[in-house]
Design a protein around this nucleic acid. Structure first.
Length: 947
RNA sequence: GCUGAAGUGGUGGAAUUGGUAGACACGUUGGACUUAAAAUCCAAUGUCCAUUAGGACGUACGGGUUCAAGUCCCGUCUUCAGUACCA
C-alpha cells in the first residue's frame, strides 16, 4: 500500500466538510482561542503560492490549540469590495458583484484543496448587504458621537446638545474643527436648526469637510499621491489639478494619543509598533504666536524647541500659506508670485525628492519677536510644508540644519544662543547637551528648564502655550467609486441626514456604466433610482426630488442620497467581530453581546506588513470608538500579531540577440548584444532548463525562433522579484497540490524558512518534504498493510518521541514552524532506523504531525482504529524522564578550539572530569609537554584547556 | 537622512540562556538495484594543505570583552522593508 495523497486528501476534506469538524461553538467549557487571518481580496488571478503562507501558519496554530484543549475560532471570509472588480466592470460592463462571486468560487476551491480548518459557517463578505448594513450602522454611530478630551472618550452627540443648551460651548473640551465660535446657552437655544446642525457637524467623529484632492479631469477620478508622476497621471499621462471637494472625514486624530498608548499593551513586533508610532508622529513642544508688523495679522507656529526662541532670525511660511498674499510688500510681490507659481507646478513628490536645492523668497514683511520686539523678516520657502503643523516655522538657524542652510544661502544672520558651541560649519541640534546663552532670562539653563520657562513666559504674554502636535491627520472617508459601501446618508438643504437602522442596508443602486459622470460626479451619480423618500423610507427615483429652497417648489420629503462610497478600509475595520456570531444569529446585531463577551478579541492575527499603517491603525481606531460607546468590551482588536514574509517569485529570463529572432543560452550570452525577456516560469525546470517546445507554444514570437543551446539545453537566467503576472513568475498552488499533495505544500511552505522572512519561491526542495511524507507513511504501512503493533517501546523510541514532543511544542509556541518540520524529519529518520512499530510511539507522533500535515495524519489515525477525527486528540505530554542521560559526550577544546570528544558520566565531579581529561592520551598529544595555565570544566557542557 | 530587520557552504536554512558552527533539506559526485528510466537505498560533500594521521582558515568587514563569540560591546560596509524637508 503506497501513499496515494490525492485520494487521501480528497477523502478527508470531504469528511471535515460533512462532519463540520471545525465548527466553533459559542458555548463551551473549554477556554477560547481566536486565530485570524487577514481576509483576502478575491482577485481574478486566484491564489498564488504566496497567499497560503500565512494561512498555513495560522492553521497549524489553530489545529495545535485544538489539540491543546481550546475552543478555537478560526474563520475566513472575503474583503470583497475593491478597485480591480470595478476596473474590470468599466472595461467589460460586467457587474462587479458577478465577477466577485466568480472569483470567490475560485478562491474557495483553492483554499479547500489545501485543507484549512476554517469554520466556513461564519464566512463574511464585506460586499454582502447583510454585512455592510452594519458598516453603515457604525458610520452612523460615529456621526452620532463626539470626543471629550477630559474623559478621553467618545460620547453620544445628544449629550453634547444638552450641554450646549444648558451652558453653551465654552466649557466643552472636545476634539473639533478649529473654526468653532464660542456661544452661550441662550445663543444656542436661539440658533435655527440648520445652524445647530452646522455647529454639531464640527464636533461629530465623522464630518463633512472641504478637502483638497488630486482630480484628474481626463480620467474623471480622484488620484492618490502615488498615482501621480511629475504632475500628470501615471496612467495615461493626463494633467492633474488640485480640487476642493466636500468629503466625509473620520476624526481619527481624536484617538492619536490612545492609539499611541495602546501599542504598549499589545504583543506586536517592534518594527510594526514603530511604524505606527511614526505614523502617529507625536511631538511635544509649544505653539508661539508672532505679531506681523504693520498688519492686523498673526503667525502661529509650532516648535519643539521653545528654548531657542532667542535664536529666531527669520520666519518661513509655506508658499501656500494663507497669509502670504496679505502681507507681501509691493516691491516683493512679483518675485513672490513667480516663486509660488514655480512651486505649485512641482508635485509634492518632486519637492520631497529634491531636498538639496534651497529655494525661497523674502516677502518684504516683518514679524515682531515676542520678547525682544525686534523685527524678524518673513520669508516663504518650500521646505516648509503647508500640510504639517501650521504651515509656518520660526527659523532658528543655529539649532536646526534646514534653517541653517537656508540662512547661509540667503545671507541671513545666524545668532548663536548656545554656550561654548561652534556653529561656523553647521547647526547644533543636540538638545541634551545644551546650555542656553544670549537669551536674557533663559541664559545658563539646559533644554528642559529653558523650555519650561520659555513656555511660561509666552503664556504670560498671551503669545503661546505648551502644545503636543500629532502628524496623524483625519482620514478622508469618501471615495468616488462604485464598488464600495454606500453611505446611509441623504441631504436636506445640503445638510446630511442619517437613515435609521431599521431601514438599513442602503443597497448599491444599479448603474449603466461604472465611470464618473460627465459633470465629474461619482459613478452613483449615474443611478436613476437614488433618492430617499422619508415618507416610505425607501429608495425612489431621482425624478421625484423637488428643488427645495427654490421658490414655488414644495418639499415633498424626497431627497438626494450621497453619491460617494466608503473606502476599502471601512469593511475591514470591524469584520473580526462579525465572525464571533454564528450566522443564524446575525440578524438583529452585528454580533450578540454574549458572542462578543465570549470571544473578546483576536488572540492571534497573521497577515502582511503592508497593512501596518492602514488597516491595522483604522481597525484599532474603530475598536476604541466602539469600546467607548459600549458596543464592544475590548479596547484593542488584535492581541498578538505576526507578519508573514512575502514569497517572492523567481523570474526566468531568455536572451534575445538584438535585432534578431535568435535566443542565446545564459552561459553563452557573453559577446552578444542581448535583450532580456521574461518568460513563463512554469515551463522551466529546477535545473533552469527551458522546455523549448512549450516556449514555442507559449507566445507566437517564439514560434519560429532560433535557439543557441549549451550542452543540448537552453539555460535561462534568474531574477528574484515580487510575484506578479507581468513577470510571468506566478506559481499557482493548484499544480503543486496535484503533483505532490496539499500536505507537501503545507510542509514545504513552512520548511522554506522563518515565517516572518521574505523568501523566494523555488520548487526544487519540495521533493524533500514529499519524500519525508512517503517515509512517514512507510513507518506505518507496508505492502502487507498496517505495520503498527503493540510492541513495547524501547528506550530509544521513547527518547526520540519525547525529544520531538518538546521541540515541536516549543517551536509552535515560538512560531518557528520551519524547524519543527526538520524535527519531524529527524524523528522519522530515527524511528525508521530503530525499526519502530510500537503503537505507543507512532500514535502520539501522528498527533504531533497532524497540525502540519492533517490529511496523512487523519488517514493513518483511522488506520490505527480510531473512528473520530484526530483534530481534537489531546496533544502528547512531554515527559522529561525519557531524555535523562547518564553520560555526556564532552567536547574537549584547547584554547577554545574543539579537538576531540570524550564520553563521560554526567554525575562525575568537576575534579574527576579534569583528572580524566588531563590523563587522556589525546590531551597529552595536544599539549605536547606544555603545562596548561588553566582548565575550565563546565559540567554537562564543555571542557576547555588553556595554555 | 531616519526607523526597523538582516548579512552563516553551491542553494534554502539550523544553532532558544555565550559552550562541538553548518542540524534538516535541496543540489552535486560516486555506488547498489534495473535491459533502461523513474522510484528506492547506501556513501561522500564548508574552503584550503596533506597519501594518511592530521593541520590551517572559516558565520559581511575592522576592532574589543571572555577560558570560550555567529551569539555580547564599539566602529564600518552591504541588502531588504517602511518612512521622509515633521519645524
Amino acid at each position: 500500500m503506497s501513499y496515494h495523497f490525492n485520494e487521501i486528501e480528497a477523502k478527508w476534506q470531504k469528511y471535515w466538510a460533512d462532519n463540520h469538524t471545525f465548527k466553533a461553538e459559542n458555548k463551551s467549557d473549554k477556554p477560547k482561542y481566536y486565530v485570524l487571518d487577514m481576509f483576502p481580496y478575491p482577485s481574478g488571478a486566484g491564489l498564488h503560492v504566496g497567499h497560503p503562507l500565512g494561512y498555513i501558519a495560522s492553521d497549524i496554530y489553530a489545529r495545535y490549540k485544538r489539540h491543546k484543549g481550546f475552543n478555537v475560532l478560526h474563520p475566513q471570509g472575503y474583503d470583497s469590495f475593491g478597485l480591480p472588480a470595478e476596473q474590470y466592470a468599466i472595461q467589460t460592463g460586467q457587474h462587479p458583484a458577478i465577477t466577485t462571486e466568480t472569483n470567490i468560487k475560485t478562491y474557495r476551491r483553492q483554499l479547500d484543496q489545501i485543507g484549512f480548518s476554517f469554520d466556513w459557517s461564519r464566512e463574511v463578505r464585506t460586499s454582502n448587504p447583510d454585512y455592510y448594513k452594519w458598516t453603515q450602522w457604525i458610520f452612523i454611530q460615529l456621526f452620532e458621537s463626539w470626543y471629550c478630551k477630559n474623559h478621553q472618550s467618545a460620547f453620544p452627540i445628544s449629550e453634547l446638545e444638552k450641554v450646549f443648551s444648558s451652558e453653551g460651548n465654552e466649557s466643552v473640551e472636545a476634539v473639533c474643527d478649529d473654526n468653532v465660535n464660542v456661544f452661550t446657552a441662550e445663543e444656542w437655544n436661539q440658533f435655527s436648526s440648520e445652524k445647530k446642525q452646522d455647529i454639531l457637524l464640527k464636533y461629530r467623529l465623522t464630518y463633512l469637510a472641504e478637502t483638497e484632492v488630486n482630480w484628474c479631469p481626463a480620467l474623471g477620478t480622484v488620484l492618490a499621491n502615488d498615482e501621480i508622476v511629475n504632475g500628470v497621471s501615471e496612467r495615461g499621462g493626463h494633467p492633474v489639478i488640485r480640487k476642493k471637494m466636500t468629503q466625509w472625514s473620520m476624526r481619527i486624530s481624536a484617538y492619536a494619543e490612545r492609539l499611541l498608548q495602546g501599542l504598549d499593551t499589545i504583543d506586536w513586533t517592534d518594527s510594526l509598533k514603530e511604524s505606527q508610532r511614526n505614523w502617529i508622529g507625536k511631538s511635544v513642544g509649544a505653539s508661539v504666536t508672532f505679531n506681523v508688523n504693520d498688519h492686523d495679522a498673526v503667525i502661529d507656529v509650532f516648535t519643539t524647541r521653545p528654548d531657542t526662541i532667542y535664536g529666531v532670525s527669520f520666519m518661513t511660511l509655506a508658499p501656500e500659506h494663507d497669509l502670504v498674499s496679505q502681507i507681501v510688500t509691493d516691491e516683493q510681490k512679483a518675485e513672490v508670485e513667480a516663486y509660488i507659481e514655480a512651486t505649485a507646478k512641482r508635485s509634492e513628490r518632486d519637492r520631497m525628492a529634491d531636498v538639496k536645492t534651497i529655494s525661497g523668497v523674502f516677502t518684504g514683511a516683518y514679524a515682531e519677536h515676542p520678547f525682544t520686539k525686534e523685527p524678524i523678516p518673513i520669508w516663504i520657502g518650500d521646505y516648509v510644508l503647508a500640510g504639517y503643523g501650521t504651515g509656518a516655522v520660526m527659523s532658528v538657524p543655529c539649532g536646526d540644519q534646514r534653517d541653517y542652510d537656508f540662512a547661509k544661502h540667503f545671507n541671513i544672520p545666524i545668532p548663536n544662543i548656545f554656550e561654548g558651541v561652534d556653529i561656523s560649519e553647521e547647526a547644533f541640534s543636540d538638545k541634551e547637551n545644551t546650555i542656553i546663552a544670549n537669551s536674557d532670562f533663559l541664559n545658563g539653563m539646559n533644554y528642559k528648564k529653558a523650555t519650561k520657562r520659555a513656555i511660561y513666559e509666552l503664556e504670560q504674554l498671551g503669545q503661546g502655550e505648551g502644545k503636543t502636535n500629532y502628524r496623524l491627520r483625519d482620514a478622508v472617508f469618501s471615495r468616488q467609486r462604485y464598488w464600495g459601501e454606500p453611505f446611509p446618508v441623504y441631504y436636506v438643504n445640503g445638510m446630511p441626514q442619517m437613515i435609521d437602522l431599521e431601514h438599513l442596508p442602503v443597497r448599491l443602486p444599479e448603474v449603466e456604466k461604472y465611470l464618473p459622470t460627465e459633470e465629474g460626479e461619482p459613478p452613483l451619480g449615474r443611478a436613476d433610482v437614488w433618492a430617499w423618500d422619508t415618507n416610505t423610507n425607501t429608495i425612489v427615483s431621482n425624478n421625484l426630488v423637488t428643488l427645495s429652497g427654490v421658490e414655488g417648489s414644495h418639499d415633498n420629503g424626497i431627497y438626494p442620497l450621497e453619491l460617494n462610497t466608503m473606502p476599502g478600509w471601512a469593511g475591514s475595520s470591524w469584520y473580526f467581530f462579525r465572525y464571533m456570531e454564528e450566522a443564524a444569529n446575525r440578524g438583529e446585531h452585528f454580533a450578540t453581546e454574549d458572542a462578543l463577551k465570549y470571544w473578546e478579541n483576536v488572540d492571534l492575527y497573521i497577515g502582511g506588513s503592508e497593512h501596518a499603517t492602514g488597516h491595522l491603525l483604522y481597525s484599532r481606531f474603530w475598536v476604541k470608538f466602539m469600546h467607548d460607546r459600549g458596543f464592544v468590551g475590548v479596547d484593542e482588536p488584535f492581541k498578538k500579531l505576526i507578519n508573514q514574509g512575502m514569497i517572492l517569485g523567481t523570474s526566468a529570463i531568455v536572451y534575445r540577440v538584438s535585432g534578431t529572432n535568435t535566443y542565446v543560452s545564459k552561459g553563452l550570452k557573453e559577446g552578444h548584444d542581448v535583450e532580456e525577456i521574461r518568460v513563463d516560469v512554469n515551463i522551466v525546470n529546477a535545473s533552469d532548463e527551458i522546455d523549448i517546445e512549450k516556449l514555442k507554444q507559449w507566445q507566437p514570437q517564439f514560434e519560429n525562433a532560433e535557439f543557441i543551446l549549451e550542452e543540448g539545453n537552453y539555460i535561462v537566467g534568474r531574477e528574484v522579484e515580487k510575484m506578479s503576472k507581468r513577470w510571468f513568475n506566478v506559481v499557482n498552488p493548484d499544480s503543486i497540490c496535484e503533483q505532490y499533495g496539499a500536505d507537501s505544500l503545507r510542509l514545504y511552505e513552512m520548511f522554506l524558512g522563518p515565517l516572518e522572512q521574505a523568501k523566494p519561491w523555488n520548487t526544487a526542495g519540495i521533493t524533500g518534504v514529499h519524500g519525508f511524507l512517503k517515509k512517514l507513511w512507510k513507518l506505518y504501512v507496508d505492502d502487507n498493510g498496517l505495520k503498527v503493533n503493540d510492541a513495547e517501546a524501547t528506550k530509544d523510541n521513547l527518547k526520540t518521541l519525547h525529544k520531538t514532543i518538546k521541540k515541536v511544542e516549543d517551536d509552535i509556541e515560538n512560531f518557528s514552524f520551519n524547524t519543527s518540520v526538520s524535527t519531524f524529519m529527524i524523528a522519522v529518520n530515527e524511528l525508521t532506523a530503530q525499526k519502530c512499530t510500537s503503537k505507543a510511539i507512532l500514535e502520539p507522533l501522528l498527533v504531533l504531525i497532524s497540525p502540519y500535515a492533517p490529511h496523512i495524519a487523519e488517514e493513518l489515525w483511522s488506520k490505527l482504529g480510531h473512528d473520530q477525527s484526530i483534530s481534537t486528540a489531546p496533544f502528547p505530554k512531554f515527559e522529561e524522564k525519557h531524555l535523562v542521560e547518564s553520560s555526556k559526550n564532552y567536547p574537549i577544546s584547547f584554547n577554545g578550539k574543539m579537538r576531540f570528544t570524550l564520553e563521560l558520566p554526567l554525575d562525575m565531579s568537576k575534579d574527576d572530569i579534569e583528572k580524566t581529561v588531563m590523563a587522556h592520551e589525546k590531551t597529552i598529544a595536544q599539549l605536547q609537554g606544555r603545562e596548561p595555565k588553566k582548565v575550565i570544566v563546565v559540567p554537562g557542557k564543555i571542557v576547555n584547556i588553556v595554555g
